[in-house]
Amino acid sequence: MNMALKILHSGGRKKERETVTYEHDNGSDLKQFAYGKFPIDYAVNFEGLNLAVDLDRGMYHYRRALGDWKTEINISVNGGHMLIHPVEPLNLPDNLTDFMEIRFDPIKIEPSGICVIFVTMPIEIGVFLESPSGSTDIVDIVSYVYPKYSLYGGANRGVVTRFNESKVYYYPPAMKNYEAGLLKLEIENRSDEWATVGKAVIFQKGLYLYFDEKFVAASAEMKIISPDVAVVTGVDTPIRQGMTRSYRLFKNRKLSPFYNVPGMLNDTAYTMDMGLI
């Protein structure tokens, strides 16, 4: 399988193409979690996570434990499947916000310059049940990562964000796919001035997560309009071929229409107008 990735390279208006090799493919021995679609009575025992669905007198019992954090749910369904997919990290401990913020080491970008970086983002693991008719619902969300929230902008007109700090990578690094995902961020400075970027705020609906046996990843574009303003848009494209798209959790959440969310231009584009660093 060809693991190479074509990315847009930094440096002016001209977009060069470069082949990037994944660190995973150079012999990384990180133990990875198996996402996918499984029989309904599937069981998981992985890095402290124990998860099982048992059939007892016609009723399914879902049991999950991660350390001291335990959940038990009774499920009435006539067969079906269990989907274990990575989901956007905006659900724990509560659905507090629809925005994810990633802070990274600031990057200076020349006027009209373009660069592609990779940053990490936390991952939550969603357990879905699919009935024989194909109807899917979330059963449980669990995460190895302790959540932390922040505020982008001021208290009067800012947004609460799920906070994450990341190093900046110019290649896809190896990582534990049950803890973190990759965000491929294409940054384009459309202004006539140098811009410094140290954070990206992404709306949940713009987080299109894809996964394969080694990666969980999403893509986004950041278009810098002025040194203090940028529009961040989620891109519904896998970062490499052969990836499966995660089940979208926002269908189960009641998201406000974008026109009621300050800064949203459409369902996936958020205007960061309260600073980029």
């Binding site: 929230y149 922040s150 906070f163």
Partner: peptide
């Protein structure tokens, strides 16, 4: 604490 905001 998750809800003790990082920023401010």
């Amino acid at each position: 604490h998750p809800y003790a905001l990082k920023s401010p």
